[in-house]
């Protein structure tokens, strides 16, 4: 579809621009200002790039960066195939499709801290079914004491919470495939795998990119759920970037280093979202 060229369209976009700029640009500028100074209450000194050097060489933060990438990677590796599978299993039409849609959407509407609470209860060995069940099966499971268990629980919690998003997106992508495609495939006696590989997957590409982008970014800024579930522990094993940052900024009130940390964090996000966005828009134009 050809679009009209008109700079008057800016007037329609202006309210959005002003609204978002107010909450985005002023804070960003302030963070940059913080990041190059040493601030105690009313006194502040210019320190240049010292904080950046310190943050980049801080091994604890490097660890949480690695942890963050591993976590986001695992989230994508589990949720994307599972989400596609669920979307393929959903009924195509009728009453049941609406019911399944509603049930799938349910976890998405649970507030982040309540997700933490639910799994905090569900995973406990004394009062939670999940923790009790695992222990009854002979596994020594305790998410509050064992780092591996804590990791596993945080991951499972995220899968529980967000796989539906991928499934719903894929479902909408699958519905957009005309029936004629499937008929042609059945005439050719194409196998299920071939139908998936050559008809469904290509059609899913654009919605999957949106899903992957949303999931990557949201898992990259995950804060509330592990905060409620484990408080970042045991040790630092489930302390992800946002939590390390919040601890530094609000807990210890190290405004300067926290500012530098924020900027680095923001630059990584900017780079990754640009890569995804470019892949998305250039995939569309072909």
């Amino acid at each position: 579809m050809k679009k009209t060229k008109s700079n008057k369209a800016w007037f329609l976009v202006l309210p959005v621009f002003i609204l978002v700029a107010f909450s985005a640009i002023v804070p960003l500028m302030t963070v940059v200002n913080y990041s190059i100074q040493d601030i105690f209450g009313a006194t502040r000194y210019f320190v240049g790039v010292e904080w950046y050097r310190e943050i980049l060489n801080n091994s604890r933060l490097q660890d949480s960066l690695v942890r963050q990438f591993v976590f986001s990677g695992s989230v994508l590796l589990i949720e994307v195939p599972l989400g596609i599978a669920v979307a393929l299993m959903m009924p195509k039409a009728g009453k049941w499709s609406v019911v399944t849609l509603l049930v799938l959407a349910l976890p998405l509407l649970v507030p982040l801290n309540v997700v933490g609470t639910i799994w905090q209860i569900f995973g406990r060995a004394d009062i939670g079914l999940f923790g009790w069940g695992l222990n009854a099966l002979g596994m020594d499971y305790n998410y509050a004491a064992n780092p591996m268990d804590a990791w596993f629980t945080v991951l499972l919690m995220d899968v529980w919470h967000w796989t539906s998003l991928i499934a719903l997106l894929c479902y909408s992508g699958l519905r957009a495939i005309p029936d004629a495609y499937y008929q042609a495939a059945s005439i050719d006696r194409a196998s299920n795998w071939a139908v998936f590989r050559y008809i469904q997957l290509p059609k899913l590409k654009s919605v999957l990119l949106i899903g992957v982008l949303l999931r990557f970014m949201d898992s990259f800024m995950i804060y509330t759920e592990p905060f409620v579930l484990t408080g970042g522990g045991p040790g630092n094993s489930t302390t992800f970037l946002s939590q390390a940052l919040t601890k530094m900024a609000v807990g210890q009130f190290d405004i300067g280093p926290a500012g530098a940390f924020s900027i680095i964090y923001f630059l990584i996000i900017l780079l990754v979202s640009w890569l995804f966005y470019t892949a998305m828009t250039h995939g569309d134009s072909k």
Binding site: V26, M29, T30, V32, N33, Y34, I36, Q37, I39, R44, F46
Partner: peptide, 14 residues
Amino acid sequence: EWMAWTTPSALFFV
């Protein structure tokens, strides 16, 4: 005042 401006960062944004 709370934005804690410095000359270098101001120059950067300009």
